[in-house]
Simulated assay, not measured.
Amino acid sequence: MLKKSILAVFTLLILTACGNKKEDMSAEERQKIIDEGTAGFEMNDGKITKAENVPSDEEKAILAAFDEYIAAFNAEDLDRYMQTISKNPKGFDYEEDKKRTKEVFEQSEVKRDVKDTTIIKYSEEEAQIHTNMTVHLVELKTKVKHESVGQQVTVFVKEDGGWKVTSIFYIGDDTKSTTGK
């Protein structure tokens, strides 16, 4: 039962603000999302392709919004984190995300490490950022440590003059748990 509880907390963390899970979609649904431009990225020789049409001022604003989204989450500051989230997200429910994130912050120590952050799609209304992400979580009650390594596409929309997270697509490559001391 304890393992199920730990896995539930970890899954909750990974899926916070992530209404679109790879496992819940068929291959056709995933392809439709990519084809319709909801989320997707191209790789050339194993490398992510950067969008070339991003104005430099927008690139700075989008990357700053992404950095704040990660920093607010890592600070476990719920109000600050929710300011990075769209009030009308496409990929999840705002109130449900707030509730889940609060639970994660109350039950664990958590940190997201990102690298290779790249804007992969851009229009005046929407931007997508691809990143390689490692999520570190320690459950407070049990001290069990979890780590998940994967790729995330974070979709931003223009809202109230800034860029806000509207949906997230996370594909986990590796997850492991260890007992803490």
Rank of each mutant, 00 (worst) to 15 (best):
M43E: 14
M43L: 15
N44G: 13
N44Q: 14
D45Y: 11
D45V: 08
G46N: 13
G46T: 07
G46K: 11
I48T: 11
I48D: 05
T49S: 06
T49R: 03
K50V: 12
E52Y: 04
E52K: 13
N53I: 06
P55R: 00
P55G: 01
S56C: 09
E58G: 08
E58T: 08
E58R: 10
E58Q: 15
E58Y: 09
E59W: 06
L63R: 03
L63M: 10
D67K: 15
D67Q: 15
D67F: 11
E68S: 15
E68C: 08
Y69R: 05
Y69E: 04
Y69S: 06
Y69C: 06
Y69I: 07
Y69A: 04
I70P: 02
I70T: 04
A71I: 07
A71R: 07
A72L: 00
F73I: 00
N74K: 02
A75G: 01
A75Y: 00
A75T: 00
A75P: 01
D77V: 06
D77Q: 07
D77C: 11
L78M: 00
L78N: 00
D79A: 08
R80F: 05
R80N: 08
R80S: 15
Q83P: 06
Q83W: 06
I85F: 02
S86H: 06
S86F: 08
S86V: 06
K87G: 15
K87F: 07
K90T: 13
K90R: 15
F92V: 04
D93W: 07
E95P: 03
E95N: 12
E96Y: 11
D97K: 04
K98M: 04
K98T: 01
R100I: 03
T101I: 01
K102P: 02
E103T: 10
E103K: 09
F105L: 00
E106T: 00
E106Y: 01
Q107N: 10
S108Q: 01
S108N: 01
S108C: 03
E109I: 10
V110Y: 00
K111N: 12
K111I: 11
K111P: 05
R112Y: 12
R112D: 11
D113W: 07
K115Y: 07
D116Q: 13
T117S: 10
K121R: 13
S123R: 02
S123H: 04
E124S: 15
E125S: 14
E125C: 02
E126R: 12
A127C: 02
A127D: 03
A127R: 01
I129F: 08
I129N: 03
T131Q: 12
T131S: 15
T131C: 14
N132F: 12
N132L: 13
T134N: 10
T134E: 05
H136D: 04
H136W: 06
H136I: 00
L137F: 05
V138W: 03
V138Q: 05
V138G: 02
E139G: 06
E139P: 09
L140E: 09
L140V: 08
K141H: 08
T142A: 08
K143F: 10
V144I: 13
V144G: 06
V144K: 12
H146C: 15
H146D: 11
E147M: 15
S148F: 11
S148A: 15
S148R: 08
S148L: 12
G150S: 07
G150A: 07
Q151T: 12
Q152I: 14
Q152W: 09
V153E: 09
V155Q: 10
V155L: 06
V157Y: 10
